[in-house]
Simulated scan of single mutants.
Amino acid sequence: MPTGVREVSCSASDAHYKVIQSIPLTSDLNRCNDNPKTRGGIPLNEYVYCLVGIGSYARP
C-alpha cells in the first residue's frame, strides 16, 4: 500500500475517505472522472479506487 494509506472502517474516527467504486486492471486515475461523486482516486495493485470524502473531508 502507498505510504499514508491504510484500510479502516468508515465509522472509524480516523477514516477520511470511503471507496465508492473500484476499477480493476488499471492504474489510470482519470477513470474516476466519470463518477461525479468522486474526490479523486488511488491506484493499488492494478485497481483504481475512487474515493469520496467523509466527515471534515467531505466536499461542501
Rank of each mutant, 00 (worst) to 15 (best):
G55F: 01
R39T: 12
V52D: 11
V52H: 09
Y57A: 15
E46D: 13
T26S: 15
N45Q: 14
R6T: 11
G55L: 02
K37T: 13
S11I: 13
R39V: 00
G41C: 03
N33R: 14
E7T: 11
Y57H: 15
G55K: 08
S11F: 12
C32I: 01
P24Y: 03
R39S: 13
G55R: 06
N33P: 01
V19F: 06
K18A: 15
L29F: 03
S9Q: 07
S56I: 04
S22K: 11
R6H: 15
R39N: 11
D34V: 14
N35H: 04
R31D: 09
A12T: 01
E46K: 15
N45W: 12
N45Y: 13
C32M: 06
S13E: 09
Y47H: 13
C32P: 05
A12H: 07
R59F: 12
S22A: 15
G40C: 08
G41V: 04
R6W: 08
V52N: 06
S27D: 10
S11Q: 12
S9A: 14
G41Q: 03
Y17Q: 02
A12S: 14
S13G: 02
C32H: 02
H16C: 10
I54Q: 09
K18D: 07
K18G: 06
L25C: 06
Y49P: 00
I20L: 06
A15Y: 01
A58Q: 15
V19C: 07
N35F: 01
I42Y: 02
Y47I: 08
A15P: 08
C50M: 07
H16I: 01
L29M: 08
I23A: 00
V8E: 14
H16W: 07
